[in-house]
């Protein structure tokens, strides 16, 4: 099988990323794709009492040119929220026995050519990995004596969210998988999406495919003549392909963050 841009079945498209450029946010990232897709994600935090909050993460997605109640926007928001609520390491957000950080993740898709769920998810990963939170200076045990958490005034003391706990911090991501006949493609391009038999969106966390796993039509119009059903084998092979190769994606993104930190010039252009 040859893909139009000569990628291997498991190969993702090239992307350009920049992190930590929004001064008013705790974390931010931008990804630009070669097909013109662009997404900016901002992560902001707030100190909350855990007992009073149902979720410690709130996600909002905005796609340029689409209404907030459109199917595309609500589906991406639903899938991203479900993924993060199921697989995010919430222990990192705990401040004291009563208080936690709550994260507000705002995603803006400025332009997109292909289905933007992976673009939004990868940008969210980068923004979360580069999120900095102020250093807690008060006691962490407030079980007996209730005390409001206080923080260091010096932003240089701030800690990366990734370093807030001993466990390895890897936010989950969403992968787009295309199925054409017996072929499985990771990260299909716009042209590939128009001829796919079917597509699967799968979560990936802790080096394995995780939920949500859903199928959908990625073509521009809902009456895509190519759209066909899936068989069990295609689903199993898609999960196996993701399990085999998507771990490398985390390494590539982490390397990208390291390179970006060496190249801080305050500009995103």
């Amino acid at each position: 099988m040859y893909r139009p841009d000569l990628r291997s079945p498991h190969q993702f498209r090239l992307l350009e990323a920049k992190t930590g450029f929004l001064p008013g946010s705790n974390g931010s990232a931008r990804i630009r794709m070669t097909d013109g897709g662009e997404c900016i994600v901002s992560v902001k935090s707030k100190v909350v009492q855990r007992a009073q909050e149902s979720n410690l993460i709130e996600v909002d997605v905005d796609i340029s040119g689409l209404r907030d109640d459109s199917n595309l926007v609500t589906n991406i928001k639903y899938n991203l929220t479900t993924l993060l609520l199921q697989s995010f390491p919430f222990k990192c957000l705990h401040l004291t026995s009563r208080y936690s950080y709550k994260l507000y993740i705002d995603c803006i898709v400025i332009s997109h050519a292909s289905y933007p769920v992976t673009l939004v998810s990868l940008t969210t990963y980068l923004a979360l990995k580069t999120t900095r939170l102020p250093l807690l200076v008060s006691e962490t045990n407030d079980q007996d004596i209730e005390e409001l958490p206080t923080f260091s005034d010096d932003w240089d003391d701030s800690k990366l969210l990734a370093h807030m706990s001993d466990i390895q911090f890897r936010p989950p991501i969403l992968i787009t998988i295309g199925v054409v006949g017996s072929n499985i493609l990771l990260d299909p391009s716009t042209e590939e999406e128009q001829v796919l038999d079917n597509a699967i969106i799968a979560g990936f966390a802790d080096d394995a495919v995780t939920t949500p796993i859903i199928n959908m039509n990625l073509a521009y119009n809902s009456n895509n003549t190519q759209f066909k059903g899936l068989d069990n084998k295609a689903i199993t092979e898609s999960i196996a392909l993701c399990n085999k190769y998507c771990g490398a994606l985390f390494k590539a993104l982490d390397d990208l963050i390291d390179q970006d930190e060496d190249d801080i010039d305050g500009s995103i252009f």
Binding site: Q86, T211, I213, I214, N215, L230, D231, N232, I235
Partner: peptide, 10 residues
């Protein structure tokens, strides 16, 4: 048994 809809969660 062509699969037309798949949704796994949880």
């Amino acid at each position: 048994d062509e699969i037309v809809g798949l949704w796994m969660d949880g």
